[in-house]
């Protein structure tokens, strides 16, 4: 039996596609659930046409705007809450509410305020995503190993160097985990906001295909969206994580032994 995660993922994907194809073609449900072959053909056609580039670029731009806003607000509030009891008490309940805020609420309110502009998905995404980053950064700051700060002080290391080499590095794993999660939320909320109020972007195109009652069109754009997310997750974010957090990834104590 294969236990490798990637093999299991591949196996489950193939099983899902086979099950979907059997259901669609075997029960003649292609109008209702489309089929892997129809979606694949439509995807190839879309990719060759180049139409996707504009919409993808628009969505990406909005995601990045939202993520930048999320990062700024989330990081600043997390650091402030972690370092100050006053701000911790003042903001903790709001962050808890923010964590539970419905995505559609943010998308609709942003659309009502900002209309058909890039600001709508940016604000909607940031409003939903930043509490997750704030919470992670806050916990990261709280968990800084103050023995390392005492060590720094004992060796006359300057405050700036200690902040850079101890506090920043301590918080980085929590920040990165929070940022990664927030980035995924930004994707989802941006497309949701595009669905509500936009004239371009992947969310808009999914909504456009829905109005045409084209399930194949909806699934095609959804698959394209998923492929891009997987590329960003595995091709970019995981590679960064491997390099930045190399120190966490291997322990050889058992092999090496000794005093």
């Amino acid at each position: 039996m294969y236990t490798n995660g990637k093999v299991i993922f591949l196996e489950s994907t193939v099983a899902l596609l086979v099950f979907w194809a059997l259901l669609a073609h075997g029960l003649a449900l292609t109008d209702t659930i489309s089929s892997p072959t129809l979606v694949f053909a439509s995807l190839v056609e879309l990719l060759l046409s180049g139409d996707w580039v504009v919409h993808m670029a628009d969505t990406m731009r909005r995601v990045i705007y939202g993520f930048v806003l999320t990062t700024i607000i989330g990081t600043v509030l997390g650091v402030v809450m972690g370092m100050s009891d006053f701000w911790e008490n003042a903001l903790q309940d709001y962050i808890t509410i923010g964590l539970a805020l419905p995505s559609l609420f943010a998308a609709i309110f942003a659309a009502m305020w900002f209309g058909l502009s890039d600001v709508t998905p940016m604000v909607a995404a940031a409003a939903i995503a930043f509490p997750f980053l704030t919470q992670n950064v806050y916990e990261g700051v709280k968990n800084v190993n103050y023995e390392l700060m005492e060590m720094s002080s004992a060796f006359d290391v300057s405050r700036n160097r200690a902040i850079r080499r101890v506090i920043f590095q301590s918080v980085l794993p929590e920040w990165f985990a929070g940022a990664r999660y927030s980035f995924a939320i930004c994707w989802k909320i941006t497309t949701l906001a595009e669905l509500v109020a936009a004239s371009s972007g992947i969310g808009y195109m999914i909504e456009f295909q829905m109005h045409k009652l084209s399930i194949t069109g909806v699934l095609t754009w959804t698959v394209l969206f998923t492929m891009v997310i997987l590329f960003v997750e595995y091709g970019i974010l995981q590679q960064i994580e491997k390099r930045v957090f190399a120190w966490r990834q291997s322990t050889e104590i058992g092999i090496m032994g000794g005093a």
């Binding site: 023995e147 060590m151 006359d156 290391v157 080499r165 101890v166 120190w247």
Partner: peptide
């Protein structure tokens, strides 16, 4: 100073841990 626990920066190598206290 040598502490009860080593108090090393886990994200730095052995050499970098020593370099850390040589700021001046």
């Amino acid at each position: 100073h040598v502490f009860q626990s080593p108090r090393l920066l886990p994200w730095n190598t052995c050499v970098q841990n020593i370099e850390y206290v040589h700021e001046n």
